[in-house]
């Protein structure tokens, strides 16, 4: 080769081969020959995985920050962030407790002291969880004030209420996992109330605690709920929620 390849040669070499073309569908901004035309803008949305979330075109008023405050999107993003940080935390955490084998609490101490970035990721997980609870609440308020639950969006409002409940349950089950005094007693306040459920109070409490009071069985049970069962259910409801947004005509309004 007589000359040193410049940036354009490198770009051409990377983009102009079968592997790259097989990954990025026509219209992708990463594919060779993307031009900023209406056709390619439409294809960029249509041929992207984000087409599951967004149509090719959206109402102009929906772009205004003062309409949505990006609350629903932020909640979804926080859910993803919580999943990522949560997976990291799972590598270093064992949901085991009981006198003489307080592994969960020991893992929490190690996470803060010995694991690289352990403290940072744990902090992020906790603050993101509190923030998500808040943004989901505010998203509900925003939707209410815009009357966005009115036909044809009634059912999606109900799905949203289920998602709010699931978010609260996820936050609450996660609260127990550090297995410190704060976790144990904050959760006790909540679970004591469940025992007052009419007729089935004791049974409900027994199933949720895995016993008559909070103990090692509760920790394991809530861990599974927190990392597997509730996220699974939440994901399904999220899919329905997003699908209905598009089927019901996209974002509501303008007012």
């Amino acid at each position: 080769m007589s000359r040193i390849p410049n940036a354009d040669d490198v770009k051409k070499g990377v983009q102009d081969n079968v592997i790259w073309k097989s990954i990025f569908r026509p219209g992708s901004i990463y594919r060779k020959g993307y031009r900023d035309t209406s056709r390619d803008r439409a294809l960029a949305a249509m041929n992207n995985v984000l087409y599951h979330l967004h149509p090719v075109k959206v109402k102009r008023h929906g772009l205004k920050l003062s309409y949505t405050y990006c609350l629903g999107g932020t909640s979804f993003f926080l859910f993803i962030l919580l999943t990522v940080t949560g997976i990291f935390l799972m590598f270093f955490y064992t949901p085991a407790a009981g006198s003489g084998s307080e592994i969960a609490y020991a893992d929490m101490q190690d996470l803060s002291a010995a694991v690289p970035f352990g403290s940072f990721v744990r902090n992020m997980h906790r603050w993101a969880a509190h923030l998500m609870t808040l943004t989901v609440f505010l998203h509900m308020a925003r939707v209410f004030y815009h009357g966005a639950y009115k036909p044809p969006r009634e059912f999606n409002w109900i799905v949203g209420i289920v998602l709010l409940l699931l978010t609260l349950l996820l936050a609450f089950t996660g609260y127990l996992l550090p297995w410190d005094q704060l976790a144990l007693w904050a959760v006790s306040v909540g679970t004591d109330m469940m025992g007052y459920t009419p007729v089935f109070g004791d049974q409900v409490q027994f199933v949720l605690l895995g016993g008559v009071q909070i103990g090692p069985e509760t920790l394991l049970r809530w861990y599974v709920l927190h990392v597997l069962a509730l996220p699974f259910v939440l994901t399904i409801f999220l899919a329905v929620h997003f699908w209905r947004i598009r089927k019901d005509g996209g974002i509501s309004g303008p007012l």
Partner: peptide, 11 residues
């Protein structure tokens, strides 16, 4: 309706 392209405006 007054609409804009999702890419690049919304994304």
């Amino acid at each position: 309706e007054d609409k804009v392209y999702t890419w690049p405006h919304l994304i």
